[in-house]
Amino acid sequence: MLNSGRLRLLSLLETLGTVRAVAEATHLSASTVSQQLAVLETETRCRLLERAGRRVRLTPAGLLLARRGREILDQMAEAEAELHALNDEPIGAVRLGVFQSAIWTLAVPAATRLATTHPRLHLELIELEPHESGPALRSGEADIIVTTTDYVGLSWGADLEIIPLGADPIVLVLPRGHPLASRTTVNLAACEDETWACDRPQSYMADLTVRLCREAGFEPRVACRFSNYLMLLRHVESGRSIALLPALAVTPDHAVVTRELGTPVHRNVTIVVRRGTTQRAAVNAVVAALRDHPEIQGLSAPTRHPGPGQHSPVS
């Protein structure tokens, strides 16, 4: 009989790539993970792993079981929810991964409403930027993510259900009194001599900032890199930098001004869930709460997803 815990370890190995990474994700020792995978091989009477230098990799049988195992785990979670909620009451824990700028504008208001409408549903919020949320969803560390499918570093396959929320414009953020603040729109070429505040390297917004500046003909001179948008906005407030940020990230309580770009750019904000979990009452309730609230009225209508390496203008 298959063990759900060992199935999860095998699925994580397929996603994360190494036994050490699986051990860190599950707070187990690497030797414990290896032992449990060996037990799974005995249970299935199949060779699931093979050595590749110092690492192990999945055999064809291991790949098959890892992918089927993820489906089995989702079905088990769905069955448990159904058994606990025969009256269709959303119940249990749902892990929602959200990029930073949507936490207070989208996720927290949805969680507040759910606490009133579905008190037996426990919503756990996890900050996950676009380059982190896709892998977390596939590995089962998140049940739902709010992300952008414009991030070119990820593929969105048939195993995922994508639910559009809207288009969030990328804006230029300036200190109050900055000379460029007198313009209605700003072409990035005018920012060649400016100093920039950026997100972490290889994150969605850091990559986008570099790409747009290079398209405008210059390399941005970066003064600071903060994963926390509050710190980044405070740096801009001080007059020591400018930044590119999603409009959702800039709230009225910051002493900055925002200007549209001469060539408009946006990101498509979406909800993504694994196929097979969409029928769980708790997951459905969270998706409905994210879609049906006034906070998304600031987003424009979703647009067609651009091709790799492209960005679409705001409608």
Rank of each mutant, 00 (worst) to 15 (best):
E24T: 06
V173N: 02
A85G: 15
N228H: 09
T44M: 12
T147Q: 10
V186I: 04
D159A: 12
A189S: 15
H178A: 06
T116S: 15
S241H: 05
E219W: 06
G53Y: 03
L96S: 02
S227M: 11
V286I: 00
W156M: 13
I170T: 11
Y151Q: 03
T15F: 00
A38V: 03
V22G: 03
Q36V: 00
P294H: 04
D199K: 10
H235Q: 08
W104I: 00
C191F: 09
D253K: 14
R275K: 12
A190R: 14
R267G: 07
R57Q: 12
R138Y: 04
P308W: 09
L40R: 02
V173Y: 10
S133G: 02
T42R: 15
A85P: 01
G217F: 07
R304C: 01
G134Y: 07
T251G: 02
E80K: 13
Y204G: 02
A85L: 05
T112Y: 04
C46L: 14
L114N: 01
V39C: 01
M1P: 05
D168I: 01
R57M: 08
G298R: 13
L83R: 14
P135Q: 01
E71Q: 15
R120W: 07
T148W: 12
R225D: 06
T18K: 04
P119C: 06
V56W: 11
L245K: 05
S203K: 11
E14I: 00
L83K: 12
P306A: 11
E80Y: 08
L160W: 04
E295K: 07
E14P: 00
A282V: 00
S182F: 00
S4G: 09
P109M: 06
R211T: 14
A181M: 03
T116K: 15
C46S: 15
E43L: 10
N87F: 08
C213T: 08
G276A: 11
E24W: 09
L165V: 08
D150C: 09
S241T: 04
R259F: 02
Q202F: 14
T112N: 11
L180M: 12
R280K: 02
A81W: 03
L106N: 05
R259Y: 11
A110D: 09
G53N: 05
S4I: 12
V272Q: 03
A216C: 05
D159E: 15
L188W: 04
P169R: 14
P308Q: 12
L48Y: 08
G17Q: 07
C191K: 02
T18E: 09
P246G: 11
R267K: 08
L165C: 06
R120H: 15
G69Q: 13
R221W: 04
T209E: 08
R274G: 02
A181I: 01
I126S: 10
V257M: 10
L165T: 03
H305Q: 13
D193W: 06
G97M: 05
P175E: 10
E194L: 07
L65S: 01
T26R: 11
Q297I: 00
T116V: 13
P246L: 01
A110E: 06
L48W: 09
G262Y: 07
S241G: 13
G140K: 03
L16W: 01
L16Y: 01
G262P: 00
T185F: 03
A81E: 15
L16F: 09
R113F: 02
L64C: 10
E78D: 11
T112Q: 14
M231K: 15
W196R: 10
D207N: 15
L233F: 07
E24M: 08
P90S: 10
S155W: 09
P119G: 04
H131A: 13
